[in-house]
Design a binder for these strands. Structure first.
Length: 268
DNA sequence: CGCCAGGACGCCC
DNA sequence: GGGCGTCATGGC
């Protein structure tokens, strides 16, 4: 990572980074592409931190109107800029399929998101498609003028959430808020727990099964060994890894999974 | 119209 | 423990 400050903007140079690939690969649901004179520009939020970011040219980015402190403390961490992805992709390149996935979209980075936001977002994601997931989360954020904290959702019932039109997931969302507000679930403790304990704890929340628990661990707690298996990854495993996913990749299996997810859904 | 979606639950055996 | 119907909603 290399950056400089220009007026009120942060100018970032990072070759292993592509905005379209990172912000539209199904890990986050609140980024919107907006019109600009740059390669592309996205407006969005990470919990309640807002950002407008442009890709000026390949590997060159502008974080608009961001202080150096916010960049270093919030956004550099969120975009996982302290991790060297070129080294990671060197390991990935030893695997034939993953190598293709990296060549197809090598600018994906694993976003380090907020655990509570991920808990809510991925409960919404179950048996749902990405455009509709985005719509439901939009309606939630509109209602609270930003992503609600657990405290703000204290006491909400499934009926209260009918405006989301989230279907059967409303009761799960209400229960998740209840679990966090009562202290029955402490996300910061789960994030630090051994992974199998963390999985078991998350699955105590109604509407959180194996797949959603893995997504919360991977996207919301940066547990890179977590490996969510949805219908797309199931196809990848059947088609390309009939003898199982290689052991040497499992430490970063979650990141690999994100490359594979994007690849299988978008490859020509 | 029917099929599908970053699945989980409840019930059955 | 595994198999199967059901659950809302809307994108395509």
């Amino acid at each position: 990572m290399d950056y400089s400050i220009k007026n009120n903007d942060i100018i970032l140079s990072e070759k292993d980074f592509n905005l379209d690939e990172t912000l539209d690969c199904g890990q986050a649901f609140r980024w919107k592409k907006i019109q600009s004179d740059y390669l592309c520009t996205y407006e969005g939020s990470f919990f309640n931190n807002k950002l407008v970011i442009s890709e000026k040219s390949k590997g060159e980015f502008i974080l608009h109107n961001v202080s150096e402190a916010d960049f270093l403390e919030i956004w550099a961490d969120y975009f996982d800029l302290y991790t060297d992805y070129s080294q990671l992709k060197m390991i990935f390149s030893e695997d034939e399929t993953l190598s293709k996935a990296c060549n197809f979209a090598g600018g994906i980075r694993l976003l380090k998101q907020n655990s509570w936001e991920c808990l809510i977002s991925f409960i919404i994601s179950q048996n749902n498609n990405i455009p509709r997931i985005k719509g439901i989360i939009d309606r939630l954020c509109d209602n609270y003028s930003g992503f609600p904290t657990a405290e703000q959702m204290n006491g909400v019932t499934a009926d209260d959430l009918s405006y989301l039109r989230s279907g059967f997931r409303g009761k799960y969302l209400a229960h998740a808020a209840e679990c966090v507000n009562s202290g029955e679930i402490v996300l910061s403790e789960i994030a630090a727990a051994p992974i199998d304990e963390a999985r078991t704890a998350l699955k105590k929340i109604k509407g959180v099964g194996p797949k959603v628990a893995e997504c919360i661990l991977l996207f919301g707690m940066h547990r890179t060994e977590a490996f969510p298996i949805d219908v797309w990854i199931k196809r990848v495993l059947e088609e390309y890894y009939p003898n199982g996913f290689p052991n040497y990749l499992k430490e970063n299996g979650g990141i690999a999974q994100q490359y594979l997810f994007h690849y299988i859904r978008n490859k020509p």
